[in-house]
Design a binder for these strands. Structure first.
Lengths: 171, 171
DNA sequence: CAGACTTGCTTGAACTATCAACTTCTGCCG
DNA sequence: CGGCAGAAGTTGATAGTTCAAGCAAGTCTG
């Protein structure tokens, strides 16, 4: 199974140091455990995975509780395809409905239904509790701030817009 | 915020402050983007998702390149069921094989094959690069250390062993 | 040593994610 | 206008995840 003899990589790669490896392993472990934990909590209590819950929250925060599909996808950092499937499922559950966009016939709005809003209202406390217990209650204020900054940096580096991010003269 | 008849929850929940919300949103965005990014990179280059790659790494680091299924699952922070499916797939790809455990007839070893080791060798540099670019190259040494500590704390709080962690008299 | 319980691991069904088409519509350029 | 590139969103096939249930082998208890 020869795929390629390492093209575009002349010299020895910069392996992670022991310290970096420890950090990275901790990152993987924490994120794996936390995602799993929140998914399980929300699946059990609210009947949907964490990311679907996040979609409902985004809609609830939006004017008229609605958002164009593409906007919602961008905001949740997922592909349009994934969102399409997700909204289909949320529609089946009665928590979201689609509406045509009058100004662009290709467009669709995802709209939070009253039922969807109610589900959110009912399960938000439990979810906040879970997040608190797993994260905020265990960190000092300094660590919380640091976490925010670090995550902001990582996210920025991965934004799809990154392509042009090194062309500051275009901004 | 009137949340009215909240059953099984006497007092008003402790909502996240604005600051906490910002941190939390950054966390979700960064982890979503990063997981996606690494999955895509490894799927494209090595033909497997990130977590599968992690399993091969664990095996490679283990004595005789083998680990009991349960050990591997614990170490990767996933369920045995998920591991079972994963190993089945890795077996099909020829990167892992199963072996019976002589001392416990219920037991199975997952063993990294030579092909598996080769795949790892070939694609490790690209993966390390991706991790560096997304994370370590963007953080100061202090931030790296802070990230490690924070993630360690979160992971510890979510270890399955947590159940008995507040019953020290049992230890 | 029988029975009950636990551990180790697997299985199948239902669900979710990904990837590559595909449809429809918009904006643009001549 | 006519044509065409690109955007918005969906779809279906394939792959991965979850959950509950299951089997078989080990362990404990009386």
């Amino acid at each position: 199974m020869k795929t390629a003899p390492e093209p575009a990589r002349a010299d020895e790669p910069r392996w992670l140091t022991d310290q970096e490896q420890r950090v990275w392993r901790s990152y993987i472990e924490a994120t794996t455990l936390l995602e799993d934990h929140l998914d399980r909590q929300l699946q059990r209590d609210a009947g949907m995975p964490h990311i679907y819950y996040g979609l409902l929250v985004k809609l609830a925060e939006s004017p008229h509780r609605r958002l164009r599909m593409t906007e919602l996808a961008k905001s949740a950092k997922i592909t349009r395809s994934r969102l399409s499937h997700a909204v289909a499922r949320l529609e089946k559950s009665g928590w979201v409905r689609r509406e045509d966009c009058p100004s662009d016939k290709r467009g669709q709005f995802a709209v939070l239904t009253d039922e969807g809003h109610e589900v959110l209202r009912r399960h938000a406390p439990g979810h906040v509790d879970a997040v608190r217990q797993a994260v905020f209650d265990r960190l000092t204020p300094e660590q919380q701030e640091s976490l925010g900054e670090i995550m902001r940096i990582i996210a920025e580096g991965l934004e799809p817009s990154e392509a042009g991010a090194d062309l500051p003269w275009l901004r």
